[in-house]
Design a protein around this nucleic acid. Sequence first.
DNA 1: GCCAACGTTGGC
DNA 2: GCCAACGTTGGC
Length: 621
Amino acid sequence: MAEDWLDCPALGPGWKRREVLRKSGVTCGRSDTYYESPTGDRIRSKVELTRYLGPACDLTLFDFKHGVLCYPAPKAHVLAVPSRKRKKPSRPVKSRQRQVGPCKGDVRKEAPGDETKADTDAAPASFPATGYSDEANGGLAGTLVEAEVGSADMGWGVHAPRAPCLGPWPHPTLCWQRVGCGECTACQVTEDCGACSTCLLQLPHDVASGLFCKCEQRRCLRIVERSRGCGVCRGCQTREDCGCCRVCLRPPRPGLRRQWRCVQRRCLRGRHGRRRGGCDPKIVARRHPQTQPLPPPPLLQPPESTELHPRALAPSSPAELIYYCVDEDELQPYTNRRQNRKCGSCAACLRRTDCGRCDFCCDKPKFGGSNQKRQKCRWRQCLQFAMKRLLPSVWAGSEDGAELPSPYHCRRKPVSARRRQPGPTLESPLVMPIALPGRAQTSMKQETGGSFVLPPPGTDLVFLREGASSPVPVPGPALSTEAPLQESQCPGLSWVVAPTQVKQEKVDAQEDWTPGTAIRISPVLLPGCPSKAINTGLRPVKQEPPDPEEDKGEENRDDSALDPAPEEEAGGAGTPVITEIFSLGGTRFRDTAIWLPRLRKLLAVNENEYFTELQLKEEAL
DNA sequence: GCCAACGTTGGC
DNA sequence: GCCAACGTTGGC
């Protein structure tokens, strides 16, 4: 990050201030103000500044945003000085070759009487992504500033519009007028053909739903190419519209054929998979709600055709219609990349409270930390994400798992090189590998000093339980009869409940947990099942802290058999155990088809809630 | 290669 | 405005 710190005399000698303009994302264009104390401490907010300076320092009159003291004077004079500062780019235009120019903030800053507003905060997330103004429209109104046009990393400009561009039209590079790689022949075409269905049907005027269309002759070939489906995934192989998704239910417009692909028929690997390493589980789940079998083909929806895109480039494409009719669903994976680490459904993701004890919590300011690590509570870090890191090949074995988003779309290291060394800062403490007695323990590296490693052959995954100190195998048959575990071949895993191995919790958490609280079932080895400890007598225990939202999905449970541990009662240590055996990927094992029916049979009594989940998983496969 | 540090961005 | 935390970088 460029260090363009400016002196901030309002705070005194040695204080520096800088303003950083957000370059991308839904808050693109927004600016953040940071301060640096004479001692080098970084301050991010007024609250932090107040905390830093202490209660004796009254910051009531201090305008944090602009770094000046705001005396109770007429508005117009308050920020006269800093307004010049604000015009300065917050940082060198290091990676951005294009300048926003008169767009947005600069214009707004000039507006009289606007000084007291967070005027650089011009990109509210809720800004409607409508108003694409193609030059065919010649439109000024509602032109939109694009976050990163033509970014090679982000997919050739497939970004949500961010903010209204108030500068003069046209903006040659920064508006949605030009979306694409800018290099292909289609991108070189400067005029609409006037003959394609888009031109004829005046689709560019379709801005009501935040969508836009473009002359077919000008559609970026690279994006169109990408918009094709893989042809393999379930989405591509689904031939019938579901008739019930929001696309199918979208009211048809008079004279126009529907242009958006049924959600159920969208490629699960396409945009998400090929670029990000796989489908977002949330997207998969959303597109394929397993509780709903594919509905019969809709009677009112004519078969989709590629007529809208007459180029021979994608004659058989199942998804070519999607591209230039991008909706929020399609944009989401790009604009919300930071969500990739949440499955949203595992117990860790559902957990609402920080443990307050792990190293990451201790680092949080609210727990008195220095905010250096800035990581999510270890007990809230997604289990699915952890599994993807720990058992990449297991995930790769399933259709969507094979393309699950890379934990890191990191430029520095390929996923293959990184995923076998998951760092402690990224893994959930709920999942870690250990070796079982009698197993080969070659190169086994238990969590020492915080490193979780992929289980080598002969080891098993362990579910850790918050608040204890050493792994405790679940009573019951071990996996001795199973073939030697080859993570890459047959993930025959025994699931063991183990206490937490979180670094800083080793010492102080022992008394918080006893093996008896970890699991109250008698696991059995299921024939054909990859040695999962399954309770056949009692319902599986999902030891989560009481949470109203979670309770919604567990209303029909018999809680009499589940006495949450005291720490859970207190909202301290909710720990997913058995439930997560499945949500973590049990049904993704390659021999699912063999053992799952048996499992279902064994669990036929009092396992309704499991059935639901298993069925969901099975459907997903 | 690991991981602490922190710039950055999403969301409330 | 503020906080949470994601994603990247650089030191080791």
